[in-house]
Amino acid sequence: MTYSLELKDLRKSFGKTEIIRGTNLQVKAGERVAIIGPNGAGKSTLFNLISGRFEPTSGQVLLNGQRIDGKKPFEINRLGLSRSFQITNIFPKLSVFENLRCGVLWSLGYKYTFFRFLADLDDANQRADELMAMIKLDKKRDVLATNLTYAEQRALEIGITIAGGANVILLDEPTAGMSRSETSRFINLIKEVTVGKTLLTVEHDMGVVFGLADKIAVVVYGEIIAYDTPEAVRADQRVQEAYLGSSVADAQAGGH
């Protein structure tokens, strides 16, 4: 079987310190996978290895069966993988529409020299309008990104992330800093805009994890100690001891 994303004995060391220790992961097309673990477990390093910001010390990263380890981030993006970051990454002095159009133009391969003809790029403009509707910011079309609420800025970043039509999406703590009501709406938004896509997310909010993920990968000290459905992970004694503990009880009590 060819997986949408596959990690094979992936390792990463900084100096003599091994951060990622022989990680294996297989994600099928269309699955939503949450990566959880304590602070310092290696979750963000794993994302950086997958997206090309870091090069593995050894092992392989495969996207739809093709090796991408060692490739540059923009090359990986062009092959169909896109990611967001913990810190909101938008153009604050551009409008919502202009932000989305920048993402679309990059994905379509337009060079900066063509940007003077933006009004004539019907395909890019139409796609940007479609994205605005998807992320429910069409009423904020001409509002500068800096004037959006925090939740709206995160939604805009999601729009930019999916602008190129990538089939594998990585979201790094997408609901961090949101209120409970904002988080609930944002989970629904993520589900809507990633239909048919493969999703990996790093998330600390266990309510979000159990409400969003088809599978959960638990990372502890650079190793995946469990990878299964939310129900199986919730019941796994190793996970309880290593990480979840009261977080599971809190999530269950909250109805997630």
Rank of each mutant, 00 (worst) to 15 (best):
A226D: 08
K93R: 13
I76Y: 06
E152D: 09
R21C: 13
R78W: 01
V143G: 08
Q153K: 11
Y110P: 04
G42F: 09
M134Y: 03
G70Y: 02
G37F: 08
V104N: 03
L100C: 09
P73D: 02
D69S: 14
A124R: 07
E6L: 10
D250I: 15
S95Q: 01
Y3S: 08
V218I: 01
T175P: 00
T88F: 05
R180M: 11
R21D: 07
L46D: 08
L63F: 07
R234K: 14
S246N: 10
R21N: 14
R116K: 14
A133R: 14
G30F: 03
L46A: 02
G15W: 01
T149V: 06
E192G: 04
L62D: 09
T2I: 14
T149I: 00
G211Q: 10
N99E: 08
C102K: 00
I169E: 13
A133Q: 12
Q60G: 01
S58C: 07
I20P: 04
D142W: 05
A128V: 06
L148S: 03
D69L: 05
Q237K: 15
S107Q: 01
Y150I: 11
L148M: 09
R32H: 10
L121H: 13
Y243E: 05
V33K: 10
R78V: 06
A213L: 14
G70M: 10
E6Y: 08
F14A: 00
R127M: 07
I225P: 12
M1E: 05
N167V: 04
S95A: 10
P38V: 02
Y243D: 00
I187R: 07
T194F: 12
K197I: 12
L199T: 13
F74P: 07
G52D: 01
V218G: 05
I87K: 14
G164V: 11
V220H: 12
R53D: 02
Q26V: 05
E231P: 06
L105G: 02
G245L: 12
R83N: 04
T2W: 02
H256I: 06
D142V: 04
T23D: 01
R83C: 02
D138Y: 00
D228I: 03
W106M: 06
I19D: 00
A213F: 14
G196T: 09
P230V: 11
L10T: 05
N48P: 02
D69N: 14
